[in-house]
Design a protein around this nucleic acid. Structure first.
Lengths: 109, 109
DNA sequence: TCAATAATTCAACATTTCAAGAGATATTGA
DNA sequence: TCAATATCTCTTGAAATGTTGAATTATTGA
């Protein structure tokens, strides 16, 4: 991941409502959730949820798919992984002190 | 790390000049760099560098220490690690698909 | 103390972002 | 087609953010 998309994603995640939306969508996994569900979960009106979901989709961390009258939103796991990868590698240069603080689960490698 | 400081750091990093400052300071390691050096490196005036360094310090990812007439800024590796940890655990729930995309170096665990 | 250096603060301005709500659009079933 | 549902878009105003350059503060050595 290059600097520009990383900045877009960081900007998208640096807002409380949007960070909570992403956390919720990660929990929902591949089932995803509709804008209405998301709004109810993060305590936002549907128009606000829609607004922030659009921002997240533009930034590339969320995908959408119409399912009849609902639109299902999902977290893009690959993009999230790439962002963390960017932070670890490009930004932090895999600095040992940083990696040591990450408490990365043993079984991930 | 809780949600609030994570949001502060994400917000601080979601700006091109500041992201570049952090990347430079990580490269500088414990030697750190002065505001003037930082400004020259990221192509910003000294007042702009100072402004953004303050923002980074307020967010908690950068520390400062006066050394005679210069002020030395350093990246706070622990905070950066904690942010990545927050993204992996609290935000992404150690989701296998996300971890798989992180390409975390084998020898880190 | 004075001059030079390093960094910060401030004011002004433009830009962006956020929230809220009204209205518009798309989809479905009756 | 009509009503109900789900979502999106648009406008408004308030607040936050980023840039610039000038003025200010702090430190050092002559």
């Amino acid at each position: 991941m290059k600097e520009e998309p990383a900045l877009d994603i960081l900007g998208a995640l640096s807002q409380q409502t949007r960070l909570r939306i992403v956390r919720y969508l990660v929990r929902c996994g591949s089932a995803g959730a509709s804008a209405g569900d998301v709004g109810a979960e993060v305590d936002a009106s549907s128009s606000r949820a829609s607004f922030h979901l659009s921002a997240l989709e533009n930034a590339g961390v969320v995908t959408s798919e119409r399912q009849s009258r609902k639109i299902i939103y999902r977290a893009d796991f690959r993009k999230l992984g790439q962002l963390i990868s960017f932070l670890l590698e490009d930004c932090c240069g895999n600095h040992p002190e940083i990696l040591a603080c990450c408490s990365i689960p043993k079984d991930c490698c």
